[in-house]
Amino acid sequence: MYKILKNESIGEKIFLLEVEAPLVVKNALPGQFVIVMSKDDSERIPLTIYDYNKETSVLSMIYQVVGSSTLELSKMHDELFSVAGPLGKPSEVVTNIEKYKGKKIIMIGGGVGIAPVYPQAKYFTSHGLDVDIIYGAKNKDLLIILDKLQSVCNNLTVVTDDGSNGKKGLVTDALKEKHDYDLCIVMGSTIMMKFVCNLTKELNIKTIASMNPIMVDGTGMCGACRLLVNNEVKFACVDGPEFDGHLVDFDAAIKRMNLYKDEEGRRYLKDLEGETHSGGCGNCGDK
């Protein structure tokens, strides 16, 4: 069991979760993720690491309630049944930090995808790299950790879809305005990453995308998370989660994300509305 120190809302449906996880924290590096289970019968949820403290053994994650399992997680307050990790490979920049000295890095985070941007930016900045951040969200209610981000980069550009905070526009608009970078690292929804990668290809900026497909075990055992990268099958959990964004087949990845939409949607509605749910979801039909 893993003691929960904090599990609180920090934005609309967005939660900050802090647990005591000494074994996970000990070897964690930016770019890696964990798999958490709320209870012994819960789904295994992959979450990117937001922060970790090697002195206090505190592991922090930020997640959005998007379905039944994250809804359950948001209601946990004492202990989590399991936290496994750190999983996946650390960021290529972390393992080749010298190579990137003197290079200009732009990190782009969309939605809660901004959370894993933070530990990387923090690591890079503390190792003397030159980092800017573009942060995009739908509206101001969804913006989180702004102060933290400000503290780990040179320039933070915030854009919102509706202009309720920062500039109105998309992350790609912000990148078009200023793009004298040597490396782009993008994290967020698969569709957003696709558009960023299309743009950086045009702009000739090397881009790393942090993929977040469906996973089960997170250790290479099931292959649920497989992606096409340069037309080869790769497992996001062990070969990634970060890949060359110009080689990832995003269209296939987006379609794979939809695989359990029906099952998950049904369950989420049931959890939200209980047995009183009586149609309207487009799923329950006359079955």
Binding site: C222, L227, L259
Partner: peptide
């Protein structure tokens, strides 16, 4: 072979046996 609906036996068995 990455299409939706292609699974490894490991995934099917893990979902069913381990995850119930």
């Amino acid at each position: 072979e990455n299409a939706n609906g292609v699974f490894s036996a490991n995934e099917v068995l893990t979902r069913i046996n381990l995850m119930g």
